[in-house]
């Protein structure tokens, strides 16, 4: 069974997914970071595939993408780093990135590689639903890859229903109308949106991301969903770390405490 499906069967609350950019801060940090995220108790690992033009990302993740590319990260390199990850990593692993590097790699080759190394799902922010259904879904299904779609406060109820019906894995609820990166707080308007979606009783589990950075924002998100996703705040934690493993474990424990 797909590890994402398995996870949400067993755990329906306080699911934590951690995003980091592969190849950041150093090229060979990928697997040690994944092992530390798992050891700290996070439930899902989102491995970011760096891209030169990340249009849905704020300054923190833009910078990590740029550094990773300068370090020499590519999809080829990433797959070679992930080749033996299933010897040590048991939690679901998702690749998150933009479409273009995947198109150049070749969609089918990419899916094959994902399956071979043990990737469970994908988040591709610039692959819209219609294109997914027309050109990608069949192949993703064939290789056992779940595909997660984003929704935002602007997404209409009808569109949310459609996304829920046609996607699998989980739904990524973007917490506000914004690009990635931490905000000061979660507003009443956002709570209204969380409640509105919660009351729709969707078939897919929901994780809230964008602007989640600490125990307080994590707890708030978990009140209205199955859990949350942390990206930018995690990147900041590892950016200047002298001891990656220890810093990752203490940060993640402080979030889920």
């Amino acid at each position: 069974m797909n590890r994402i499906d398995q996870l949400f069967q067993q755990k329906k609350q306080r699911v934590l997914s951690i995003y980091f950019t592969a190849g950041f801060p150093r090229l060979e940090d990928t697997l040690p970071i994944m092992e530390a995220i798992q050891a700290a108790g996070a439930d899902i690992i989102e491995v970011g595939v760096p891209y030169s033009d990340p249009i849905a990302d704020g300054p923190t993740i833009q910078e990590s993408n740029m550094v990773a590319l300068q370090n020499g990260m590519s999809l080829k390199k990433l797959f070679s780093q992930l080749e033996k990850m299933r010897e040590t990593v048991q939690v679901p692993v998702i690749l998150m990135g933009y479409l273009n590097p995947i198109i150049q790699f070749g969609i089918e080759d990419f899916c094959k590689k994902c399956q071979a190394v043990g990737v469970d799902g994908l988040i591709l922010p610039d692959l819209p639903m219609q294109q997914y259904l027309d050109d990608y879904k069949e192949m993703f299904d064939q290789y056992g890859l779940r595909n997660t779609f984003l929704i935002s406060p602007q997404t209409s109820a009808a569109r949310i229903r459609e996304i829920d019906e046609k996607s699998n894995g989980f739904i990524y609820m973007v917490s506000s109308h914004s690009i990635t990166g931490a905000k000061a707080d979660i507003s009443g308007e956002q709570i209204e949106y969380f409640n509105r979606v919660k009351s729709m009783e969707l078939k897919n589990p929901r994780l809230i991301g964008f602007g989640i950075s600490d125990n307080s924002t994590f707890n708030t998100a978990c009140t209205y969903s199955h859990g949350a996703i942390i990206g930018s705040a995690f990147i900041k934690t590892i950016k200047n770390s002298q001891n990656l493993s220890a810093d990752i474990i203490s940060y993640i424990r402080s979030v889920i405490q």
Binding site: P125, P128, L150, S152, Q154, T155, V174, H177
Partner: peptide, 12 residues
């Protein structure tokens, strides 16, 4: 062509 955009821009 097409519209390869993040879902956040879909309504716009």
């Amino acid at each position: 062509g097409g519209a390869y955009i993040p879902e956040m821009l879909h309504p716009n």
